[in-house]
């Protein structure tokens, strides 16, 4: 895909995703989305795949360690040189992950940032290191969500934390989508939004499945209900994070 007419056809063929948390299911299935993305030219399809790989949790899950994720992110950002807004988006996502990773490390008892270069990325590393004891790492005056995230993580409110992080990521996507209506950047932003909406809808599906499991267990063994419910809630929002886990599936 190289001309604006094809981008227009592709973008208008994608359903409106709506506001975050407003839908219980994605308006377009993964299969259909893949079909539509076949309209992209090979170079753009490759870049999109790389971008999703480095921003989505499923993509970084198979990597050995945080440093490998950071190296991969650097390569992807370099490869997106022709698309500065997508570069900023990937950079912003990595910085958001770094902040969440720092919050989790601090919650887990780490008393200093340590070698942050090995697990963090972006502009805020030195601020995080210098303000480790501050709830918002000294960034609260222009990133108020960090202090909110600190509070939620302390309260072990995993759902609230997830909502907060997804809202922040959606806000970043909204910011960059203003300047792009019918181009490759618009396609990339749509796919990243879709991943977030799909992730949230999957949580609901998982929740429903687990609730059904709990009800069946209750019906079969009334005495074991409490244990089942406990294991269900543990499965739902298990915090198995490495430092860069976080934003996307």
């Amino acid at each position: 895909m190289s001309n604006p007419h094809q981008y227009i056809a592709l973008i208008t063929s994608l359903p409106h995703l709506g506001k975050l948390f407003s839908r219980k299911e994605v308006p377009i299935s993964q299969y259909r989305l893949r079909q539509r993305m076949a309209m992209l030219e090979p170079g753009h399809a490759r870049r999109l795949k790389e971008m999703v790989e480095v921003t989505a949790w499923a993509g970084v899950a198979h990597m050995e360690n945080d440093f490998e994720v950071i190296q991969r992110a650097r390569e992807v950002i370099h490869d997106l040189a022709e698309y500065p807004d997508l570069q900023h988006l990937v950079t912003g996502r990595m910085e958001t992950r770094t902040l969440i990773a720092a919050l989790r490390r601090r919650r887990n008892g780490q008393d200093a940032a340590g070698a942050i270069e090995a697990w963090g990325y972006g502009r805020w590393c030195s601020m995080i290191k210098a303000n480790w004891a501050d709830p918002a790492f000294g960034l609260g005056h222009f990133m108020p969500w960090v202090a909110d995230a600190h509070r939620l993580i302390r309260a072990e409110d995993h759902i609230g934390m997830e909502r907060l992080v997804l809202t922040e990521v959606f806000r970043q996507l909204d910011h960059y989508s203003i300047a792009h209506e019918f181009d490759f950047e618009a396609v990339g932003i749509y796919v990243l939004r879709w991943i977030i909406v799909e992730r949230w809808s999957r949580y609901n599906a998982d929740q429903a499945r687990n609730r059904l499991k709990a009800l069946v267990a209750e019906a079969l063994s009334p005495s074991g209900t409490a244990a089942v419910v406990q294991s269900v809630s543990a499965e739902l929002f298990t915090d198995t994070s490495t430092s860069l886990e976080g934003v996307l599936p």
Binding site: P4, H5, Q6, I8, A9, I11, T12, S13, P15, R36
Partner: peptide, 14 residues
């Protein structure tokens, strides 16, 4: 017409 038509074709898919 090509710009508008491309949008119309895409919209018909959805």
């Amino acid at each position: 017409c090509a710009l508008g038509g491309s949008a119309a074709i895409g919209a018909m898919l959805d």
